[in-house]
Structures are given as structure tokens and as C-alpha cells.
Design a protein around this nucleic acid. Sequence first.
DNA 1: GCCTTTTGACCACCA
DNA 2: ATGGTGGTCAAAAGG
Length: 378
Amino acid sequence: MASSASASLTTCLDSPSNFSLSTYFMTSSSPSFTSLLSGNDKYMDNQSWGLYDHGTNDRNGIEIPNFLSSQPPALPLSPPPVSPSSYWAIPPGLSPAELLDSPVLFPTSYAPASPTSGTFAGESFNWRSNSNDNQRGVSGEEKDCSDFSFQTQTRPPAISSSSSSLFQSSSNSVVVEKSLKRKHEGWDFNQLKQADFSSDQKTAVKSEFATVQSFSSELVPLQANMKNSSAPQPSYSQYNQAGQYMRENGRSEDGYKWRKYGQKQVKGSENPRSYYKCTYPNCSTKKKVERSLDGHITEIVYKGSHDHPKPLSTRRSSSQSVHPSGDEISDQSGAPMESGMMKEDSSISLGEDDIDHSSPISNSGGEDNENEPDANRW
DNA sequence: GCCTTTTGACCACCA
DNA sequence: ATGGTGGTCAAAAGG
Ligand SMILES: [Zn+2]
């Protein structure tokens, strides 16, 4: 973790190969920002800026983010009623309000180049080159893009207030990607630059409690820059999650069951990345989880969406369990939704409250949020 | 025996 | 063409 204290962003607009986009915003007091997208598969996907530090504790199987130290630990658990995974629950250190506001993009600093060209200030970070090893890394990144780097230490000094905290260390990030494109399966987007993202989508999140944003590729293209608040843009939605650990049923925090099918060490960071696949029959959703040495999740990337509700839990939720059958939401089920999945949405949902209440749909427990684009609103 | 994790090999992609 | 990288496969091991 320590390793990357500084992250640099690169924004490339022109270069064919890279670019990235992303948008971020941070919500909650803590900062989260993320970004993602990028164009190349490899390079981009890892965005590791080094800033994460979230701490998580697994004591109960839950991770608790702690960034600055200021946070009261305990969020996840406390609300049993809600379901452990309640994405929408608000952690105790944050107020909902804060969360909402967030569409903040990056602070000025962040937007270096202004998105002038249509691209946004995306950010890609380099995961590798800068951080420590520069060994080879250098070659690639800088190409055409301009990069910026900012440094964050692992722990930002004190930024906790909402506004100020723009980015900082994020604790974990979650990214979801959906893509159908080429390569084997698709985590990658290749170079899709903005324009190309056509099929891929990814959501990313980074924050202490991991927030997830989903990106839809389609939309992404230009708008990204404008993410301003709501509008047109980006369709990414955010969710929060806490880290995932398996819990009683073997489900992870997000409520689904995952089987690990691989682990790799990524080049730029020392954190190993684990690959998981949803164990539900016919569901091909996968996720990549990067954990820091101490086991805390630093980044989560989802690929695909579940076409099924969540497995039932033996017990869970008081809140959710209301509908046993519950599944409603799942996308269209069955088929791979890739093709049609989320259409739009374009909005990000962030907070908890908002969302739930407002849209019934999403709520069903919050379960399916991941897949769904619901982004209700921001 | 079932299911999950582990782990090195293998493969695809890209520079 | 070659090699580096990331992602996946699958045998083996563990629970
Ligand atoms: Zn699934």
C-alpha cells in the first residue's frame, strides 16, 4: 500500500491508445473518486492509484474502512437489519447528504486539462510506472497523453470534510466492467477510447466504503466531462459497498457467491489480484478483487451483471427478506444481458437514501443494484 | 463426495 | 516475431 503514494493521472485525449476517462466524484466525506476507464485493457484496468488506504477490518467479516482515522468503524455491521450488504446504508460517519452531493468532480486540481476536448479529464493513473517500479514501465504511459500526477499520500492529511476531500485516499475501489467485446471475456476494454466504449461498461468505485460507479460505455463518451451533476452524463451509478468477505453462507458482502478461479500479481502494485466468478448457474459475472497485503480490499472490478437475484440467505435481512421470492429486478434474466443491458441510466446513484426511497425498483433490497443500472439519481 | 481455494500453465492481446 | 501482461483453465489440495 504504501507503495504508491502518488498517483498520476494521465489524460490522454488524442492518443489513440490511451485515454481514459472517467469520472469521478466523490461522495461522502471521504473521497472517492475513481476513474476508470480506459482504453487499453491492460493498462487501464488497473488503475491503481496508490491512494487507497482504507482500512478494513475484518473482524466481523466486514471491512471497515478507515481512512483517516476519523472514522468510526462500524458501519457495516451495525445495521443488521438492513442486510449486511446494504449498499445503501449509510455508514456512520457519513451523512447522506454528503453523499449526495457528490458529483463533484474533481476539484479543480483534478481537472487538469479541462475536458476541453471532449474528453474528460479522465484519469488514468499509471499504475505502474510511477509508482515504484519504473522499470519498464515507463515506456508506455506517457505517450501522448499528458499526465498529471498528484500525490496523495496514503493518508491524506485531513481532509475529511466533504468538500475538501476530494480524492484522497480511497479505500477501496470497485470497478465494474461489462463488456462483451473481444478478448476472452471482456474485462478489458481495449482501446476504446471514449468513443469506443461501446460495449463495455465498467463501474468503478473507490472510496472507503467502496462506492461503485458504473459506467456505461455508451454514454460515456463524451459526456464524461460533463458530469457535472447530473445530467447527461455519465451513466455511472454509484453504490457503496463495503468490502467483501464471506459471511455465513459463503456469500460475500455483496450478497452473491463467488468462486475464485485465479490470482495474479499485477505489475504495478504489490497487491495480488484475485479473480472470482459468480457461482450461480449460468451466471457469468466475474469480479476482480485487489487486496492489500493485509487483506483489505483496495479495488474491486466487476464484469458483467448477474441475471439472477441473489442467493437467498439463510437469514438476512430483516429488511429485505420481505419478499422471499424476490427477484424481481434482475435484469431480464436469462440471457446475458450484455447486449442490452443497461441502457441508460445515466445517472448515478449514489446515496443511499436517495435511491432507495425513490425508486422502488432499485430497492429491492438493494440487491441487484449492481447490475442494474438503476442509477437513480444523483 | 462436493465445493472452494490454490497455483502454475496456458492463452490472448498488444507494444 | 517476440516478449510482457493480464486473464483464464484446470489439476491438486483443503475443508
Ligand atoms: Zn451471478
